[in-house]
């Protein structure tokens, strides 16, 4: 094995995380080591669903979220960008754990507000602009086969910008966003995943299938 971005590469050329790596990740997030280990099992399943290289490709994220690896999806691109912190076009385990940590029920509200802003700042200009907002509402309406007249759509977008844009520059800045979200906390509902609170207990199969567990079982069999 040799060092690659602080990760070891196993003989099958896939990045390999040992106990110390999992403990390091737990220390930097809201997860316990057991929970990071459960996430590692989940990650290995997701990252081998199409291309078994120890990294999650966009198609694999799409398969997990939408049950199909094909077709364009506006929301997929936004979610993938959120995970792909190093902009390498793939998601490694560090990025997976770090981003999911933001969705932890115990993550600070400020972090959730920041990440929600990133999600909506499509062009990465540091602002949520009117056209971006309209594009997202349109994508949501298309996804759910809902019809809304153009006039009504324009009116809702205009009203939202007017409500949020306190400095009256026609777009939503980070400061505008913080104030707006504090008045409309329901906007952040998708930024919390209750599953993450106790992932190791909710998904015990992850633990039973884990490498550590296999090691223990093997040892027990040897002892018998």
């Amino acid at each position: 094995c040799f060092n690659y971005q602080s990760r070891c590469i196993g003989k099958n050329q896939k990045p390999y995380y040992n106990y110390e790596d999992l403990a390091r990740l737990a220390q930097g997030t809201r997860f316990t080591v057991n929970e990071v280990e459960a996430l590692y099992v989940l990650f290995k399943r997701l990252s081998s669903s199409i291309i078994d290289d120890g990294l999650i490709h966009k198609e694999e994220l799409q398969l997990a979220l939408f049950q199909t690896p094909n077709g364009e999806n506006f929301f997929l691109d936004r979610v993938f960008d959120l995970f792909d912190e190093k902009s390498k076009g793939v998601i490694d385990f560090d990025e997976f754990v770090h981003t999911l940590s933001i969705f932890h029920p115990y993550a600070p509200l400020e972090e959730k507000i920041d990440y929600a802003f990133k999600l909506y700042d499509i062009r990465k200009t540091g602002f949520i602009e009117r056209e971006e907002l309209k594009q997202m509402v349109k994508a949501m309406l298309m996804e759910s086969d809902m019809n809304l007249s153009d006039d009504l759509l324009e009116a809702i977008v205009d009203k939202t910008i007017a409500d949020a844009d306190k400095d009256k520059d026609g777009k939503i800045s980070k400061e505008d966003w913080k104030v707006f979200v504090s008045r409309n906390p329901s906007i952040l509902k998708n930024m919390t995943l209750a599953y993450l609170k106790d992932i190791a207990c909710i998904f015990p199969s992850f633990i039973f299938k884990s490498d550590l567990d296999e090691l223990v079982k093997t040892k027990e069999l040897q002892d018998i």
């Binding site: 989940l42 997701l46 997990a64 979220l65 939408f66 049950q67 999806n73 506006f74 929301f75 997929l76 936004r78 979610v79 999911l100 969705f103 999600l119 909506y120 907002l133 309209k134 997202m136 509402v137 994508a139 949501m140 309406l141 996804e143 759910s144 809702i156 977008v157 009203k159 939202t160 409500d163 949020a164 409309n184 329901s186 906007i187 509902k189 998708n190 995943l193 599953y195 992932i199 909710i202 998904f203 199969s205």
Partner: peptide, 25 residues
Amino acid sequence: SNLNAFDIISYSSGFDLSGLFEETD
């Protein structure tokens, strides 16, 4: 109406990551 554009977007299943935790064959 008090409905804002972000409330509409938040109804999208596309921003819901719970699918990651569902067991698939």
